[in-house]
């Protein structure tokens, strides 16, 4: 795909994001779009957000579970970039009016204390480079009509990232079984679904290692202090005005989030 089209689609997604509306799946319009093209479109989309005043604060890893990979017909995760405008603090109320068609996922987030530079990064390097882990919610959102995404669509659309909330309980991955730690997601006081760290690429650290290696190949920096959302351990939960969600990671702690207002769709 030529540079002009990359810019055109990146700009289109940026405009859709800014105006809280959706666009037709890119793959419907460009059947030959490759995964590489999709990442270049994502970079353009993020470049526009940075030009508009945001900073890059981390990465998110998506498509980490086998059911989602099977659904999208891929055998590896994808990633998107986290920007300063996506950050909520625990206890904040998320305004659904800033989102289009949001769904929540419960995850484990990593914060790095050393740079991770792939290729050649293993899960052991990830633990070593990790400052702490925290329970978190990622509120995914799609700028594509009705979430009708194939892998190229979601990658171009910044891995369907919306906003995120980090919990306050920091854990040391050397003291926590991040692979077998249970994940309990409650919606309005009732258990909605449960999961476990292993649902993410066998272990969340494997997903982060994959990201370090992938970024290394693309020449994208992965720096100390960055936040990495390692991938969903729960079912996707649609959220509406008044909903309250709590996710709890066994042996670590919880993250609580409330929603108000109406999303665009």
């Amino acid at each position: 795909m030529n540079e002009e089209k990359i810019r055109q689609y990146g700009d289109e997604l940026f405009d859709a994001w800014r105006e809280r509306r959706t666009v037709a799946p890119l793959l419907e319009r460009e059947p030959d779009i490759t995964l590489d093209d999709a990442y270049r479109i994502q970079l353009r989309f993020i470049e526009r957000r940075v030009q508009a005043g945001e900073k890059i604060v981390g990465k998110k890893i998506g498509v980490t579970s086998k059911p989602v990979q099977d659904f999208l017909g891929v055998f590896q995760p994808d990633f998107g970039q986290l920007t300063s405008g996506m950050v909520y603090q625990e206890g904040d109320v998320i305004d659904l009016g800033t989102l289009i068609q949001p769904k929540a996922e419960a995850e484990l987030a990593f914060v790095l204390k050393h740079d991770l530079k792939g290729p050649g990064v293993t899960a052991m390097d990830v633990i070593r480079a990790t400052d702490y882990v925290v329970p978190c919610f990622e509120i995914v959102d799609s700028r594509i009509n009705d979430w009708k995404i194939r892998i190229q669509d979601t990658v171009a659309d910044n891995a369907s990232c919306g906003v995120y909330v980090l919990g306050k309980t920091k854990g040391d991955p050397r003291k926590l079984d991040i692979t077998l730690a249970g994940m309990v997601l409650e919606k309005n006081g009732e258990v909605h679904s449960t999961g476990v760290g292993a649902a993410v690429q066998g272990s969340p650290a494997n997903a982060v290692a994959w990201l370090a290696n992938t970024l290394g190949e693309l020449g994208i920096p992965f720096k100390a202090g960055e936040v990495i959302l390692s991938g969903s351990q729960s079912a996707l939960v649609p959220v509406v005005d008044g909903d309250e969600l709590v996710c709890t990671v066994g042996g670590l702690g919880s993250c609580r989030v409330k929603f108000s207002g109406r999303s665009a769709v």
């Binding site: 077998l180 730690a181 249970g182 309990v184 999961g195 476990v196 760290g197 990671v249 066994g250 042996g251």
Partner: peptide
Amino acid sequence: LDLRTLGVV
């Protein structure tokens, strides 16, 4: 233990 949050695979 926290019997509520034990993960299993």
